[in-house]
Measured scan of single mutants.
Amino acid sequence: HNLTITQGKLFFHYNPKLCLSEIHKMEEVSGTKGRQERNDIALKTNGDQASCENELLKFSYIRTSFDKILLRWEPYWPPDFRDLLGFMLFYKEAPYQNVTEFDGQDACGSNSWTVVDIDPPLRSNDPKSQNHPGWLMRGLKPWTQYAIFVKTLVTFSDERRTYGAKSDIIYVQTDATNPSVPLDPISVSNSSSQIILKWKPPSDPNGNITHYLVFWERQAEDSELFELDYCLKGLKLPSRTWSPPFESEDSQKHNQSEYEDSAGECCSCPKTDSQILKELEESSFRKTFEDYLHNVVFVPRKTSSGTGAEDPRPSRKRRSLGDVGNVTVAVPTVAAFPNTSSTSVPTSPEEHRPFEKVVNKESLVISGLRHFTGYRIELQACNQDTPEERCSVAAYVSARTMPEAKADDIVGPVTHEIFENNVVHLMWQEPKEPNGLIVLYEVSYRRYGDEELHLCVSRKHFALERGCRLRGLSPGNYSVRIRATSLAGNGSWTEPTYFYVTDYLDVPSNIA
């Protein structure tokens, strides 16, 4: 807008934040220059609390790290170098490059900038070799853009010569660093050979998330399962459950009422301010606690030095998902009996873990797994792929695949051998790939016309006998059925096997 004052003059007093240069501009645009008398524009009460600059400061050096910015700028000295009290560095987070010096300023003089007072450097006698002032900004957020400017702080001049310097606002972004852990990993099994893994992005990506790394490792069953005799009275049979499938998407929606109208769909109840505040506090606490764990609990591995020492970490090797089922080394339970199943799973520490690289999504279907087997899954978020990966501390989750139908069934015939004193040795093959492992066998036998009897055969007993022995049988026709019990439950009964026990007292003698 054009402003013209045809008559009258300007009068400025007691404006401590208004620089004289701005008042002189007002004289020019209003056409009143030359009308004012000496005392109409006070030299001592206008701009006496402001830094009124008329020179431009330029930054000469900028260096960044993930949490620091090192700045240096060209030296500046007023005509009387004693008038320079120091520099004021202003900075704040700036997602967009549209910041002005006066953003967030209120009537009390406060604003949204963080201000650092910096002492002037030592003055050199040689004007050509003056030290460049600077400042190291610490405690910054990774991968965050900051708006920065600097200006001088000078003393009051009796001659009211307006001098000083100020830089333009520059924008500097800190470097990326390792992201925080992925949030809320959930693993479920939808079949006997697959596990579905879902997660949420890290709360602090500290860069642009480029991919996720998912490692999985087959877990050995508890050692007590191999040692305890679950045929003993009072000892509860062990059981394991597989990871249940995901709930429906509708039930997972946030901010939804727990109660549904019987007449149909209901609208979600909005969260109160107290609920939102509580969630923010919980989120802040979780982030602080995660940072504490990362800094205190997890110790970084030592990389190899120039002395030739090897990095103890196993090298990563990509495998196809079809090879995942046989990740671990199978060892027989008892070496003397080769027909026992290889369900003991000690994992070799030198073995390469299978892994998958996930790009542009937060889910993965891990296939080719062994049925009813526990897996430990390790999830890392990465925001750099080359020249070397920059990934987060791992988040861990466990899951067990679903049982395989008929995996616990005894394959092959049940054979028998009759000894003296009416002892019958029953023999059968253990299931080759049971659900988890076989903890015991149930032997059901009966003599024709009598009630059915049951015998429990422990895992250890089966390994020693290759089956079991029935003792003290009365003469007669017998039928026997056997079924295995694994961590997933009972298998199917075998087809009945028949044998006849004679009275050993009636056996004919070869003595003449």
Rank of each mutant, 00 (worst) to 15 (best):
E420A: 06
W493L: 03
V345C: 07
N326H: 13
D229V: 05
D385C: 12
L487N: 07
S257W: 08
D385A: 13
E351P: 11
N477Q: 04
S274W: 09
V439Q: 08
S398L: 13
G467S: 02
G489Y: 11
L464M: 09
D323H: 13
V214H: 00
N339C: 08
V397F: 14
F298D: 10
L228C: 13
V214G: 03
V299I: 10
E260G: 03
E310R: 06
G412P: 07
S363E: 11
E258L: 14
S341C: 10
D450K: 06
R316L: 14
G322L: 12
C266S: 11
H416A: 05
S486E: 00
G264C: 03
E282T: 08
T343F: 08
T343C: 05
T485G: 01
G489E: 01
V480F: 07
S268L: 11
P349Q: 02
R301W: 10
N477T: 03
R316S: 14
F285M: 15
G264F: 03
V359Q: 13
D250S: 11
L277M: 15
T241M: 09
A407V: 07
A488F: 07
E388Y: 14
D506Y: 12
F298P: 04
V329R: 07
S398T: 13
A395T: 06
L455C: 12
T485D: 11
S203C: 15
T343N: 10
Y230K: 14
S474P: 07
S284E: 05
R301K: 10
D408V: 01
P475D: 03
D273I: 14
L379T: 04
L280I: 13
E388T: 11
T303H: 07
R353F: 03
L369V: 09
L280S: 05
K406W: 11
S304F: 15
S283H: 13
V327R: 12
D229S: 08
S479Q: 06
V507H: 01
Y441V: 03
S458D: 04
S305Y: 07
P270K: 10
N208M: 07
N477W: 04
Y230N: 12
G264I: 11
Y498R: 11
V329S: 10
L228M: 09
V359I: 12
A399W: 03
S492A: 13
E442L: 12
V457C: 13
A335D: 14
G476D: 00
I482L: 08
K302T: 12
H416N: 06
F372Q: 03
V329G: 13
S251G: 08
H461P: 03
M402F: 14
F246P: 08
E356F: 09
C456F: 02
E217S: 08
P434Q: 06
E290H: 15
V334H: 11
G308H: 07
C266G: 15
N490D: 03
S492M: 11
L487I: 06
D385L: 08
R313C: 14
K271L: 12
Y441A: 01
T303S: 08
K406G: 13
L426M: 14
H254P: 07
S262P: 12
Q256I: 13
P349K: 13
T333A: 15
S479R: 11
Y448E: 02
A399R: 06
T210L: 11
F462T: 03
L232M: 09
T210G: 07
P314E: 14
V423S: 06
M427Q: 02
